[in-house]
């Protein structure tokens, strides 16, 4: 009997402690009143992908080359890409349409893992609800494009790492380009004839568009 009474009193003491401490201790009342206040988001939060661009102009500075690796890697296939073409119908290394379906995306980050151009990253924005459940949830290129500064604000550590990697890649590409130019110049001098159209085009396709754009 005394055991029972002791147990009850102990339990009452615990609940009383919880009751009173909830008025003055933060950890006793952890609820965040969502619409008025938002919980702090860590830099590692990931919810939905966005596209990165460098410089001021979103379309010109776009890092994406429409290689469709992310489109193929996406498990629920929520990415839809169509390559851009210029007036003559020649393909440009840039997506004309880049849509991601919010209602299908499962925030797996595989598109980020697979992208060779560091063009796609995960955003921590979570208020993606929309009044239109068809067009509203299909986010298009214009809304997906965010500047590099935005990425720096979102996750400074990772953004700096990405910048360093791109810079290193650019430097390497620059060095290679110089070497190749030197080589071709030597070869041209040797052959003493103008380089044919056929010979020139393959290096242009191989060459990553990054260096051109960042210049």
């Amino acid at each position: 009997m005394s055991l029972l009474a002791k147990g009850i009193l102990k339990g009452m003491a615990v609940t009383a402690k919880n009751f009173f401490q909830s008025y003055y201790r933060k950890e006793r009342l952890p609820t965040v009143q969502y619409p008025e206040e938002k919980s702090t988001i860590t830099p590692f939060t990931r919810n939905f992908p966005f596209l990165l661009y460098d410089g001021d102009d979103a379309v010109d500075g776009m890092r994406c080359t429409a290689c469709t690796l992310c489109e193929r890697a996406c498990p629920p296939q929520c990415i839809y890409i169509i390559k851009d073409k210029d007036e003559k119908g020649k393909p440009i290394l840039r997506p004309r349409i880049f849509d991601i379906d919010t209602s299908v995306c499962m925030s797996c980050q595989l598109c980020v893992e697979v992208c060779p151009y560091e063009a796609i990253r995960m955003d921590s924005a979570f208020e993606l609800s929309n009044e239109n459940r068809f067009e509203g949830l299909l986010i298009n290129r214009g809304d997906l494009l965010k500047s590099n500064d935005y990425y720096h604000a979102l996750n400074p550590v990772e953004a700096r790492e990405t910048d360093d990697r791109i810079a290193a890649k650019n430097a390497l590409a620059e060095a290679k380009k110089k070497a190749r130019q030197k080589k071709t110049r030597l070869a041209a001098a040797k052959a003493k004839r103008p380089p044919s159209r056929l010979k020139k085009s393959p290096p242009a396709r191989e060459k990553p568009p990054q260096p051109e754009k960042s210049e």
Binding site: T15, N18, F19, S22, Y23, R28, L29, P30, T31, Q33
Partner: peptide, 13 residues
């Protein structure tokens, strides 16, 4: 309110 505070919630507000 009382039950909510005991359970570390704010209760109806």
């Amino acid at each position: 309110k009382g039950l909510a505070r005991i359970q570390n919630r704010p209760g109806p507000n």
